[in-house]
Amino acid sequence: MAESRGTKRPSSDGKPGPLTSDLAARIKRAQVEADVPGDADIAATNRDMSGLSRGLRLGSEFIAAILVGAGLGYLLDLWLKTSPWLLLVMLLVGFAAGVLNVVRSTAEMNRAAPPPTDAMRVPDDAEDE
């Protein structure tokens, strides 16, 4: 068999070998050329989301998880002839996955949002006293 180009294995002393450093350089160059968004870009996008877009995102993630769970349950019921038990179980699993997705997305959005300032705070009735 023909030896492929650049098949040297990295050294085992922890330092990157020629293959690893070449691969890292090629990945970096491809990311720059493709303009791949980084973590800072994603955080900036989340910061710029309006209330409506946040609500639509969370709602669509929740509904999608439920529909996927119900769909998988329905298909499994058809295949295994266990109607309606797997549909009900997978519907509940989809609901749990939807809640988990909403909690994760909300936590991500809250981390990306700037901390509230005094001008953004709304006084409470308890603060008036």
Rank of each mutant, 00 (worst) to 15 (best):
M1T: 04
A2Q: 07
E3G: 05
G6P: 04
T7E: 10
R9M: 09
P16N: 06
T20G: 03
T20E: 10
T20Q: 12
A30F: 15
V32M: 12
E33A: 14
A34L: 14
A34D: 04
D35F: 02
P37F: 01
P37N: 03
G38N: 07
D41L: 01
A43F: 11
A44M: 13
A44F: 02
T45C: 04
N46Y: 08
D48Q: 13
S50F: 10
S53F: 06
R54S: 06
R57T: 11
L58G: 05
I63L: 15
I63G: 12
I63V: 15
A64C: 10
I66G: 03
A70D: 11
G71E: 13
L76A: 08
D77Q: 09
L78R: 05
W79R: 12
L80G: 01
T82W: 05
S83M: 10
W85T: 14
L86Q: 07
L87F: 14
L87Q: 02
V89K: 15
M90S: 00
L91Y: 00
L92P: 05
V93M: 01
V99N: 02
V99W: 12
V102C: 13
V103G: 08
V103L: 09
V103P: 05
V103M: 08
R104Y: 14
A107W: 08
E108Y: 06
M109D: 00
A113T: 01
A113Y: 07
P114R: 08
P116H: 01
T117M: 14
T117H: 01
A119V: 08
D124V: 09
A126C: 07
A126W: 07
E127N: 08
